[in-house]
Amino acid sequence: MTNSGPELKQEIWSTNDPVLSARNLHKSYQDQHVLRGVEFDIRQGQVKAVLGPSGSGKSTMLRLMALLEPADDGGIFLRGRRIGVREKVSGAVVLPERELAKERRNIGMVFQKFNLFPHLTACRNVMLGLTSVKGIHHKEAEEQAMAMLQRVGLSHRAGHFPSELSGGQQQRVAIARALVMNPDVLLFDEPTSALDPELVGEVLDVMESLANDGMTMIVVTHEVRFARRVADEVTLFDSGVIVEQATPDEFFDNPQHQRTRKFLSHVH
């Protein structure tokens, strides 16, 4: 009977409930308290932009939500189900890495520095998750990868290695690599910060088209104009907590918090 717990919760989950949630997330490195009780929700099809000063813990929050690192306290919930841990009588125990790997399939991640696999062509980069995680056959995986490269406008570069691609192209391949796994939510950690200014646009265009197609996305970024135009909600993250959360218009034109006003005065 106790086994039916998680499934029960899943049935209770409705499309208006958050796809991915963080509850009271805490994380410390040595004596540095980086996350101090983060509360974060994202609903199906929503795009949330996260702004905030350097070192405030934005990347740490994404790594925890992607189950790449365990939280010291608090929990991550996917469609209402707690993930990354096994609930025991004594409390929640972090799953072993093998088990975590399975739960990570539902959450995609795009990194600031692309992190493409340099020994694989663009197409193979996109295929690897399909073949080695989902066990899809080579030919089928190749077709799916090519379709995804087409979607990011790079099918003509499929046979090229990362070292032969521009930064913007590499990041688009990285987006395709995450997207092809068909995740419930896609996390972006400053996807354009490592790019030359003239290459930023092509990556933001791809992200905007994903947003228009209904992809659920959390985007940590410094691109204020992108946040204003594409995001449904903008969040200010500072000193390990979420300070303000509002629609783009509210956030940029009528911020409620002093810290938001101060932050915006620096980036504008």
Binding site: A66, L68, E97, R98, A101, K102, E103, R104, R105, I107, G108, M109, F111, K113, N115, L116, F117, P118, H119, L128, G129, S132, V133, A174, R177, A178, M181
Partner: peptide, 30 residues
């Protein structure tokens, strides 16, 4: 091998063995 490599593999949902065999080792061999 850059730490971001294993991180990207893990983010895709690859098991530790797969990360080693498919991502880290081919680069380390070179």
């Amino acid at each position: 091998i850059d730490e971001g490599q294993a991180l990207a593999g893990r983010a895709l949902g690859m098991s530790p063995v797969k990360v080693m065999l498919k991502v880290v080792l081919p680069q380390a061999i070179r």
